[in-house]
């Protein structure tokens, strides 16, 4: 198996607070890797470091064999990395279709063209992606008026436009109902298996994590406290203590049906 992503001793501090400290992990093609941990554990910082939005203080990030420390997000994207955001981030004045067309225009290096009208460009290709994520029926609606769960699907379609090898998904199912959640994650799993890509995702819903992830890494206060298969992580005493809880206090017994 090829290693899509290798993170070595990654560290980043903000004004004296160590947001990410000495974190190392890797991700192989065909795998879903979940990153969990309480708020402020450094998940988003980790994502932004890998994505290129932040510059690491120490450590190295290697994507598809290329060291990407300090590369800008748009250059990381060119290596074949797609990204969805925790708080959905679409072009609200455009339709669903146009959002995907935009990503394809960028992929085909057309963004500076002043000649043809967008209306006729990459429509079929865009519709295929929208069908894949199951939102083709809403292709003519403005993203500004879409429901939250639907926006998450648009984000996925946009992220898939550059035929990525690696997908970074920040809370892909936040704001969705339980059925919708598992549907989206099954879709993601299917894409991972058929296209042999890798997915790194963060998630608060433990159901989603333990059902769909191949491997899990656990962060707390910027440090990696555990990694392994779902059953290994579930059995980890330290993880139970800081994150999952022992089930004796309220709010800790997660419905795990």
């Amino acid at each position: 198996m090829t290693k899509l992503l290798e993170v070595r001793n990654l560290a980043k501090a903000f004004g004296g607070i160590q947001a990410v400290d000495n974190v190392s992990f890797e991700l192989e093609a065909g795998q879903l890797l979940a990153m969990i941990g309480p708020n402020g554990a450094g998940k988003s910082t980790c994502f932004n470091l890998i994505n290129g939005q932040l510059y690491p203080d120490r450590g190295g990030i290697t994507i598809l064999g290329q060291r990407t420390n300090g590369r800008k997000p748009r250059d990381v994207w060119k290596l074949g990395v797609g990204r969805t955001f925790q708080i959905t981030c679409t072009f609200s004045s455009m339709t669903v279709l146009e959002n995907v067309q935009m990503a394809l225009l960028s992929y085909h290096k057309q963004t500076r063209s002043l000649f043809r009208k967008v209306r006729r460009l990459y429509v079929n290709e865009s519709m295929e992606l929208l069908e894949l994520v199951g939102i083709a029926a809403q292709s003519r609606r403005a993203c500004g008026v879409l429901a939250y769960g639907d926006l998450k699907r648009v984000e996925l379609a946009v992220a898939l436009a550059n035929r990525p090898k690696l997908l970074l998904m920040d809370e892909p199912t936040a704001g969705m109902g339980p059925a919708e959640r598992s549907q989206l994650m099954e879709l993601t799993s299917a894409i991972v298996r058929t296209r042999k890509i890798g997915v790194l995702f963060t998630e608060h819903d433990m159901d989603v994590v333990f059902t769909h992830a191949d491997r899990i890494i656990v962060l707390n206060r910027g440090e990696l406290v555990a990694q392994g298969t779902p059953s290994q992580v579930r059995a980890n005493v330290k993880v139970q203590e800081i994150y999952l809880g022992t089930g004796k206090t309220p709010g800790t017994a997660f419905p795990t049906s």
Partner: peptide, 14 residues
């Protein structure tokens, strides 16, 4: 109030 908090903190909050 409990959104995004670790279960131990949620218990404290309760």
């Amino acid at each position: 109030p409990s959104e995004g908090l670790a279960p131990v903190i949620v218990a404290q909050l309760a």
